[in-house]
Write a protein that binds this DNA or RNA. Structure first.
Length: 459
RNA sequence: GGCCGAGUGGCAGAGUGGCCAUGCAGCGGACUGCAAAUCCGCGUACGUCGGUUCGAUUCCGGCCUCGGCCUCCA
């Protein structure tokens, strides 16, 4: 069974065939670290994490790079506004981003390159573009000359005339062509800057990705991912500079773009202010439920974010964990995940189908009365869950872990349960029901089982 | 204006030319001291108007509605 991926470049699903099966390369545009990540920022991290998990099963080595942009005007603005050093901002929010993604079950990428660590490489790439006449110097800037690259616009499917006609931005007078974009720009003394052949300055937005790809992954990479809004201009520009710097070598073979998260059907965006921060959502919901919510829709589809979506996701996971708990509370993963789960993901990461397969496994477990079979299927469920990055906790932990913003005192719960057990033994059911009501008020749901009473956080 | 995407049952969300998605919620039954959980069962969903077809939610065309990109943005 082959892995099919939708390629933005060709607008269709294609069989994925890496250039070098011994070393598969993937790059995903990561965060600009100037504030908290919102849930929309988390979508590509989670989606490409699933792809990373899938690729690691198929290939011996997958080099996955997700950058951190730590040079940016918004970072500078945040530092000025908060009267702290730029470095304080980037260090703080890099840490928060990592913690938030970890809470969502996102594996660390193989490499997490920082733009500021690659300035010499960026300068070298700009010099190469100048030497090959794809760029020029003007008023302290270095600009990429778009007409020098004939295939420009192929990824986004727009031609130059359209872009100029639709241009809403004022064209800088020093540009030879309105579509030309900045590779290097001058810096003022109060802003971060590096010495360069063109004076003290800093890199433009697009060049850092191309340079870090060249440094860590190679001239041609297999997969490049990011949000849909990066197709133009960011990825289009990356292709232009990356291809031209390497004498026409293909820059990236498969381009993948995730759809947007919306709030009330409108794009979630920091500039619109309609955002939900991962950091905040984690106060009231487990990271795993947030991750599940992000994967309920196919990655290329829009997904409307709401509290209700998280609630539904949490309940669905409750059901799966309940099944695991009943079948084998300490189950280990099967050696290999169920074929049906892999087949779903192999079809351009069809996570909703994969989830349906997990539900089917849970159903089979609950229907079976054969303890050995139930254990075997529980191990399969666990292995299937691992492909999506879920169901890896022990059920006991899942059911008794409260979200960051809430507290439940386990000792109190246990003592109430003990008191209720005594009341039940004495057949004082009124007292037993009263104690259960008391537990419910604490946010705890209990279940009487053959082996005793278990409890879990309600919700 | 150019380019792109979407409209599926109470909600979320796949998918397919003819048959079941799946989950959450709801209803009925079994089980239970009562619950919870689980199991069994239930609900004639595919924006609209035409076309192709023996048959279309699925293919083609028009229309309506919504969203995205064209500017920083996941």
């Amino acid at each position: 069974m082959s892995l099919f991926l939708y390629n933005t470049l060709t607008r269709r699903k294609e069989v994925f065939t890496p250039a070098d099966p011994a070393r598969v390369t993937m790059y995903v545009c990561g965060p600009t670290v100037y504030s908290y990540a919102h849930i929309g920022n988390a979508r590509p991290a989670v989606v490409f994490d699933v792809l990373y998990r899938l690729l690691r099963r198929r290939y011996p080595q997958v080099v996955y790079a997700r950058n951190v942009t730590d040079i940016d005007d918004k970072i500078n603005a945040a530092a000025t506004a908060q009267k702290v050093a730029i470095n304080d901002i980037t260090t703080k929010f890099t840490g928060i981003y990592r913690a938030d993604m970890a809470a969502l079950g996102v594996l660390p990428p193989t490499i997490e390159p920082f733009a500021t660590d690659h300035v010499p490489q960026i300068i070298a790439m700009i010099q190469a573009l100048l030497a090959k006449n794809h760029a020029y110097v003007a008023e302290g800037h270095v600009l990429f000359h778009v007409p020098s690259y004939a295939a420009y616009g192929r990824l986004s499917g727009r031609d130059r005339d359209d872009m100029i006609a639709g241009a809403r931005v004022e064209v800088a007078p020093y540009k030879k062509d309105p579509a030309d974009f900045v590779l290097w720009k001058p810096s003022t003394p109060d802003l971060p800057g590096w010495d360069s052949p063109w004076g003290r300055g800093r890199p433009g937005w697009h060049i850092e990705c191309s340079s870090m790809i060249e440094t860590h992954l190679g001239n041609t990479i297999d997969i490049h991912g990011g949000g849909h809004d990066l197709i133009f201009p960011h990825h289009e520009n990356e292709i232009a500079q990356g291809t031209c710097a390497h004498d026409g070598a293909a820059y990236c073979r498969v381009w993948m773009h995730n759809g947007f998260l919306t709030m009330d059907r409108e794009k979630m965006s920091k500039s619109l202010g309609n955002i939900a921060l991962v950091h905040d959502i984690l106060q009231s919901a487990p990271g795993e439920a947030i991750r599940w919510a992000l994967l309920t829709a196919h990655y290329r589809q829009p997904l409307d974010w709401s509290d209700d979506l998280v609630t539904q996701s949490k309940r669905t996971l409750d059901g799966l964990y309940r099944t695991l708990e009943a079948a084998d509370p300490t189950a280990d993963r099967s050696a290999s995940p169920p074929e049906a789960v892999i087949a779903a993901l192999d079809d351009d990461l069809n996570t909703p189908i994969a989830m349906a397969e997990l539900a089917g496994l849970a159903k089979a477990i609950n229907q079976s009365s054969d303890a050995a079979e139930r254990k075997r299927l529980a191990a399969d469920l666990k292995a299937g869950g691992e492909m999506l990055g879920v169901l890896q906790q022990s059920p006991a932990v899942w059911f008794t872990t409260v979200s960051a913003g809430k507290t439940i005192d386990a000792a109190t719960v246990e003592s109430l349960i003990a008191a209720r057990a005594a009341a039940r033994k004495a057949r004082d059911f009124a007292e037993a029901d009263r104690l259960r009501q008391q537990l419910a008020e604490l946010g705890v749901t209990i279940e009487d089982r053959a082996g005793g009473t278990t409890w879990r956080v309600a919700g």
